[in-house]
Design a protein around this nucleic acid. Structure first.
Length: 596
RNA sequence: GGUCUUGUAGUUCAAUGGAUAGAACAAAGGUUUCCUAAACCUUAGAUCUGGGUUCGAUUCCCAGCGAGACUACCA
């Protein structure tokens, strides 16, 4: 039973006994006391004032007295302007520390036997390498997967790769025209970048051809349609759909290069998927469900022959579900893949990590599956929508060359970590150790920077300035962890035996109590993050914790403490802090070093 | 036009309807008798505007202004 629940229960009894009010008190109105007031937990009594027909201070005082008598771990209380501040016995906090100070799985709920939570993320196109926007997607997906898993749910991570379509054909056409047989092997270029280069080449030549046609007197629209390179790409798409063996072989080869490149990038980010779907295998799905809807009369056949759904009553538009030639559109496939996944995993929830430009699409998808088709998984779909990553000079636009490439970015972070670590020159690392550390710190900075922001918001990324290693950053937290570990190593070298049980009845100073109270909150923070699918909640919590520890260490002697029990207490607090930091960072997909 | 998201210090981010709106960066000054100064402390600085609901609003509702996305028989 948590502290909050115990207090809520006592509060309920008090309201009943004092005022004959029978209500279930809101646990949210029992919160940690702000540090400028005396006490550990605060009950907001305003909601009961009207019912009790007394002044707030009076109500606070009476409730305080009542629960003070009921609960023996309460040592006192005070009332300030309708806020009932309750002081909790140090023994309570010491018990918590004793129970968890060496708990390596602190804050992790054991997996329950229940239907899994399915999380789709990444979902790249195979015509170009990943960029900063994909990085936000991937990091969010990874972090959310780990957080949901730490909340006791089985998680299935899936990726839906868009491996077909006109954009891939563009790369293929350009490679055939201008490639001269270039491959990742003979050029040393990472596969996804190589294919991306030809996508860019396509665009360049396409523009040139358009200019020529316009010079010959065509309108811009005609030029766009009739440029030979575009006609070639269209023809190639047609051949692909007709399963032309030559086209399919080239398609397989170039996609293969891309996958090799993506795998490297995923590995570096710490990502792996339980299941990878390919659009080339799923793009025809969903037709039968659309037919079913047509039979049921929830969809209708437009006069031009396309199948549509009218969502005007729901505040949206009319949407096409099948083209007039009977072929699928994007949403047809999403209808089909949702069903496929439902049948495959029977998930309790399907989370789609997709950018906010698709908010409308997911509104439609949910309505079509749930309200229109009445499918059981319609309501289990959750679109985890995230904002764009903007650069100081505006948005990322591939055409204007203002894209930040994911691999380049990670390289730059590595170099920056290397530079500043070498500058400080604290330890002699072996080359392998150093390499691991720079990667850990560089990627830690990047991951933390992105994950500390609320997903719903657009965020600004300044490559030069925004990756700092001080302040509210990944490296600051990693550094704090490394220092605590260093402290504990020293304590172990000196064989201090600090892990042994502490004597009963220890008194805590303010610094100690603040830290234990923060540590007490950690499991609840993880659960809240899982509930809200918000890595930012954990990120900001760990930062506060790390900061608080630094302050604590500054103010309070640890190794120099002469009272053995006190010293052990403080080392136990340090150890538990390191564990919470490590576990929390792991939920964000960030590793923490033993020394840095 | 319609739908959705968003607006907090100079800047980047916080704040389940609760007390005096927190941090960090940038600026100024200070601190090394415990681990590793990538640290710690001090100072200065903000809720877009106007209504409403409430004991209480950065938070919820309405209107306006600003920013962004979507509103394809593309994916």
């Amino acid at each position: 039973m948590t502290l909050e629940r115990t207090l809520a229960s006592a509060l309920k009894d008090a309201l009943q006994a004092l005022y004959q009010i029978t209500i279930e008190p809101d646990e949210k109105l029992i919160q940690p006391t702000r540090k400028e007031f005396e006490g550990d937990r605060t009950i907001v009594v305003f909601p009961y004032v009207k019912l009790a027909r007394k002044a707030p201070d009076m109500v606070g005082k009476e409730i305080g007295e009542h629960i003070h008598q009921q609960l023996d771990f309460i040592t006192g209380f005070n009332v300030v302007k309708g806020y009932l501040n309750i002081s909790i016995d140090d023994a309570f906090w010491c018990d918590h520390l004793a129970a968890h100070h060496d708990d390596s799985r602190y804050g992790i709920t054991e997996e329950r036997q229940e239907a899994p939570v399915l999380i789709e993320y990444s979902s790249p196109n195979t015509n170009k390498p990943l960029h900063l926007g994909h990085v936000r997607n991937n990091l969010l997906g990874l972090a959310v997967s780990r957080i949901v898993s730490a909340c006791g749910h089985k998680v299935v991570q899936v990726n839906l790769v868009n491996d077909r379509g006109i954009h891939i054909c563009k790369s293929m056409v350009a490679w055939l025209r201008y490639g001269n047989g270039e491959t990742p092997e003979n050029s040393g270029i990472k596969g996804d970048h190589l294919v991306g280069n030809y996508y860019v080449a396509f665009d360049k030549h396409y523009k040139e051809e358009q200019q020529q046609l316009i010079a010959q007197g065509l309108t811009p629209e005609e030029a766009e349609q009739q440029a030979p390179i575009m006609l070639e790409a269209r023809e190639m798409l047609r051949q692909w759909e007709a399963e032309d063996p030559t086209v399919r072989a080239l398609w397989q080869q170039m996609n293969g290069w891309v996958y090799e490149g993506f795998d490297q990038t995923y590995n570096r980010l710490g990502i792996h998927f339980d299941k990878v779907y390919h659009e080339s295998e799923t793009y025809l799905l969903g037709k039968s469900l659309v037919e079913e809807g047509l039979q049921k009369g929830v969809f209708y056949k437009h006069e031009d022959g396309s199948v549509r759904v009218n969502l005007e009553a729901e505040g949206l538009d009319e949407k096409v579900l099948l083209r007039k030639d009977g072929t699928s559109v994007y949403i047809t496939q999403d209808i089909g893949t949702a069903q496929l996944r439902y049948e495959e995993f029977h998930p309790q929830k399907m989370i789609y990590v997709v950018g906010n430009e698709q908010n409308y699409h997911f509104d439609v998808l949910k309505l079509v599956l749930g309200k229109k088709l009445g499918l059981p998984f319609g309501d289990s779909i959750y679109h985890l929508s995230y904002g764009m990553v903007e650069l100081p000079n505006g948005k990322m636009k591939s055409r204007e060359g203002t894209v930040v490439d994911a691999d380049d970015l990670m390289d730059a972070m590595y170099e920056e970590a290397k530079r500043s670590t070498e500058e400080l020159g604290k330890f002699q690392f072996s080359p392998e150790e150093a390499d691991k550390l720079y990667e850990m710190v560089g990627l830690g900075a990047l991951k933390y920077f992105i994950l500390k922001v609320d997903p719903a918001k657009n965020m600004l990324f300044n490559p030069e300035e925004s990756i700092d290693f001080n302040g509210n950053t990944g490296p600051f937290i990693q550094y704090t962890h490394a220092r605590i570990r260093s402290l504990l190593r020293k304590a172990d070298e000196q064989q201090l035996g600090w892990r042994e049980a502490l004597p009963a009845g220890m008194k805590l100073n303010d610094e100690e109590r603040i830290l234990i109270k923060m540590l007490y909150q950690y499991p609840d923070t993880v659960l809240a993050a899982g509930e809200n699918l918000s890595p930012a909640l954990i990120a900001n919590y760990i930062y506060d914790l790390a900061k608080q520890f630094n302050h604590f260490y500054q103010e309070t002697p640890v190794m120099k403490e002469t009272d053995e029990a006190k010293r052990h207490l403080r080392l136990q607090i340090a150890n538990m802090t390191a564990l919470a930091i490590r576990n929390g960072m792991q939920l964000l997909g960030i590793d923490v070093p033993e020394r840095m």
